[in-house]
Computed example of a mutant assay.
Amino acid sequence: MSTELEPSSDTLAAVQQRRQASILLSRLQWLFILLLIIALAWLYVSQQRFQNQINERLHSNEQVVSRLNEMDDRLFAISQQSLPEPRSQAGSQAQNQLDLLRIQIQAADRLLADNNHSAAIDLLRGLQWQLSQSNNEIAPTLTIVIKQSLAEDIERLQAQSNQPSPWQLQNLAMQDIQEFLHSTNYGNSIDARNDGRDSTTRITVTNRQLIIHEVIMTLNLAMQASNMREKEQLTSYLQQARKQLQVLVPNTSLPKNNAHANSVTPSTDTDKHTTGHQKSLTKEAPHNISEVMVWLDELIANAPAATPLLTTQMLDKSR
């Protein structure tokens, strides 16, 4: 009787197989759940990445549209300000064409101020074609002079378009200064952590780090002003950065305030000034705070300035 109550070997094997099958099924279920979670996470990340790309494109399009609207507003404002005042006697057709030419040249100057050399060149070429038409009533001698000045302006702008602009050189120099200040600040942080001297020394190091951080933030503002082609703001921020750094330089090693600026007085020739400015700002990076002060003096003395076209100057003289 006792032998009949014992389960047979087939029954035990079947139970064991069911148990293994149950464990395998459970593992497959968990594996499926894990894969489902991974797929959902991947879909979420892909959706967020796609949404970010769409937002960036929309933001970029909005900036382009805003920039075009600003340019249209500026051109309209220039045309409104430059229109000749009504006179009792109607001007001749030649005078009207000359006034329109001045407005178009002012628009080209505005394009150059925005660093849009290609559009300015296209506009100047359009003016050359306009002066060559049969309906041109401007005096022949004046037309020849205007065409020559337009050709010189186009040649100069083509040469400048193949070189980095003075604004870009300013930004590159300020980035080099920021990199040096970052490395200086990082080195001071290491010295402060490894130095076991009294608390007064550690406070001095902290103040130096704070000053360097303020200078770096001021240079960020100066780079923003340079990107906006705001010369006065750029110069103001550079002078502020120099003033902040003065407390870190001994009086004996400070450069004279105006000596270096006088030695790099901007040239009246725009091309020579740009070439000299490029050489002065592509030299080796600064090695100490005194050299940074010299660099800031150079940036202040060589702050880019908008140079009017030769045609603009010639038309102003012909008034």
Rank of each mutant, 00 (worst) to 15 (best):
A173R: 15
M174K: 11
M174T: 15
Q175M: 11
Q175G: 08
Q175T: 15
D176I: 09
I177D: 12
I177G: 07
Q178P: 02
Q178A: 11
Q178H: 09
E179W: 05
E179N: 10
F180T: 07
F180A: 10
F180V: 06
L181R: 07
H182K: 11
H182V: 14
H182E: 15
H182D: 15
S183Q: 14
S183N: 14
S183K: 11
T184W: 09
N185G: 09
N185L: 07
Y186H: 10
Y186D: 12
Y186N: 10
Y186I: 02
G187K: 10
G187I: 02
N188G: 03
N188M: 03
S189P: 00
S189M: 04
I190Q: 04
I190T: 05
I190C: 01
I190L: 12
D191R: 00
D191E: 13
D191I: 07
A192D: 14
N194W: 01
D195P: 00
G196L: 15
G196R: 15
R197E: 03
D198V: 04
D198Q: 06
D198E: 09
S199C: 01
S199H: 00
T200F: 09
T200S: 07
T201K: 02
T201I: 10
R202E: 09
R202I: 11
T204S: 13
T204C: 01
T204Q: 13
V205E: 12
V205L: 12
V205G: 05
T206L: 12
T206E: 13
N207S: 05
N207T: 05
R208D: 13
R208M: 08
Q209W: 00
Q209E: 14
Q209T: 04
I211C: 03
I211T: 13
I211K: 01
I211W: 06
I211Y: 01
I212H: 00
H213I: 04
H213S: 14
H213V: 01
H213L: 14
E214N: 09
V215Q: 07
V215P: 06
I216F: 04
M217Q: 13
M217L: 13
T218W: 07
T218L: 03
T218F: 07
L219K: 06
L219S: 09
L219H: 11
N220Y: 11
N220I: 13
A222S: 15
A222W: 04
M223N: 11
Q224S: 08
Q224N: 08
Q224E: 14
A225R: 08
S226P: 03
S226H: 08
N227K: 11
M228H: 10
R229I: 03
R229T: 10
E230R: 09
E230T: 01
K231R: 14
K231D: 15
E232T: 13
E232G: 07
E232P: 00
E232I: 08
Q233V: 01
L234N: 15
T235L: 04
T235R: 06
T235V: 10
T235S: 13
Y237D: 15
Y237N: 15
L238I: 11
L238A: 08
Q239L: 12
Q240N: 12
A241C: 03
R242L: 02
R242G: 06
R242Y: 07
R242S: 08
K243G: 05
K243E: 07
Q244V: 00
Q244C: 02
Q244T: 02
L245S: 06
L245A: 05
L245P: 06
L245F: 02
Q246V: 08
V247S: 12
V247N: 04
V247P: 01
L248N: 03
L248T: 05
V249F: 05
N251P: 04
N251I: 05
N251C: 01
